[in-house]
Design a protein around this nucleic acid. Structure first.
Lengths: 224, 224
DNA sequence: GGGACTTCCTGAAAACTGCCTGAACCAGCC
DNA sequence: GGCTGGTTCAGGCAGTTTTCAGGAAGTCCC
């Protein structure tokens, strides 16, 4: 197992190399984004550990460039910040996993083991349509860096809509999937929640729209 | 030092527990693969000693499953066979060390010391999120220069939260990891401790917040 | 175009549920 | 006995879900 460590903090870089080598990995270390790209493109590494804060080119950019160059080596991003927007950026940029500093060696090794094993498993459980992202774990609805919390039922409905974007869902379908097939919820319940959702979507400034298709149902669209 | 012993041979299991307890370890013993998984996932052990030949699921499988579940507790595999192929399978499955039966108590203790040392060497003795720092040795919670002592359970919960900042932890998860998988603690216990922790976090003046996600769980955030 | 009808939207209030937290109660320990 | 830490209880609060009703918007037909 050959690992490329990209980390500008010399102390941390050495600590990483030490942990890895103690555990049977071989390592190369570079200290800035430009070198990371150059080495990463060689395609000889099994994993790349990439710090986000780097001189010359940040981790996100490096990850993105590598993916553009069709390098599919699993990338583990390191960052001190744990903002959700960062996570999303990290994921979008093509990184496979994500770890916030500080971390224990055990944690690092666990992540590496997971990365080499699974390859391509999803790290963040989200649903996205257009500029909208629904976090399936925390039930947050996000657009750009505005986020808002959804309630249980709002989430259930949002999840169904985001789950089949563009499709027309009837109120009956929505009721049966959000309230359960044996429920006695009325059409007006759905209407109320669609209204809530539209309000929250507007609040986070999304361009996506829930269209009404009269006497048929609703449909989620990206919004041009 | 808390050790999980997984061994179906009752005599050997008792012998192991005895040796360990005589040497200052505390132990839990289970007798099959399924229980091993359940207990192991609680993440409350410092070491897992795992026999290869087990009813329900063999040691390799258990080790592998634990690693997949992101449990990074060091695992010491026990086996009667000493074929090389077994050794390889052992390490592949995520085990950290490997010992063939029969062995002397001294040998066992040496392996355990090696395993804990490897970790202890480099393990960060604090967990930090935002302006909050949790000292894993003294169980103090610190922010800036305000510090406060946490009780056992408070510490257990805090450690879990600080260990995966930003992630949503359900009450069930918290119970299983802070009280143990077989516990009968109620949701209200968790609520009570969350309440204590919030009070102590406020007391040290941290900006970090424990968010409630209604009917889902809790999440620790840095607080802008 | 206008009226009659249907469907949908949405603000407000009521009903409900889960959560928080102070206080009491235990148990073990100095 | 006093102390600390853990657990349980219950009232009150706040967020959620449901209900209701008036009005807006769409459809149909003359």
């Amino acid at each position: 197992m050959h690992v490329l460590v990209v980390e500008d903090d010399t102390r941390l870089a050495e600590a990483l190399a030490r942990i890895l080598e103690d555990n049977g990995y071989t390592t190369d270390t570079v200290h800035d984004g430009a070198a990371a790209l150059e080495y990463g493109q060689s395609g000889t590494y099994d994993i790349i550990i990439l710090d986000v804060m780097l001189p010359k080119a940040d981790g996100f950019t490096v990850a993105q460039s590598l993916r553009r160059a069709h390098v599919s080596t699993p990338i583990l991003l390191l960052t001190a910040r744990d903002a959700i927007s960062d996570k999303i950026t990290g994921y979008d940029s093509g990184a496979d996993d994500y770890m916030t500093k500080p971390f224990s060696p055990a944690e690092l090794l666990a992540h590496l083991r997971a990365l080499t094993r699974r390859q391509g498993d999803v790290v963040f459980e989200t649903l996205a349509v257009g500029d909208l992202t629904l976090n399936l774990e925390s039930m947050d609805l996000t657009c750009e860096n505005e986020s808002i919390r959804l309630s249980q039922k709002e989430f259930a409905i949002a999840r169904i809509l985001l789950g089949s974007p563009g499709a027309v869902l009837s109120k009956e379908q929505l009721i049966s999937r959000a309230w359960g097939p044996a429920s006695s919820a009325s059409d007006n319940n759905v209407e109320a929640y669609i209204s809530f959702l539209r309000k929250k979507m507007a609040h986070v400034g999304s361009k996506a729209k829930i269209e009404t298709i009269r006497s048929v149902g609703y449909r989620l669209t990206e919004g041009d």
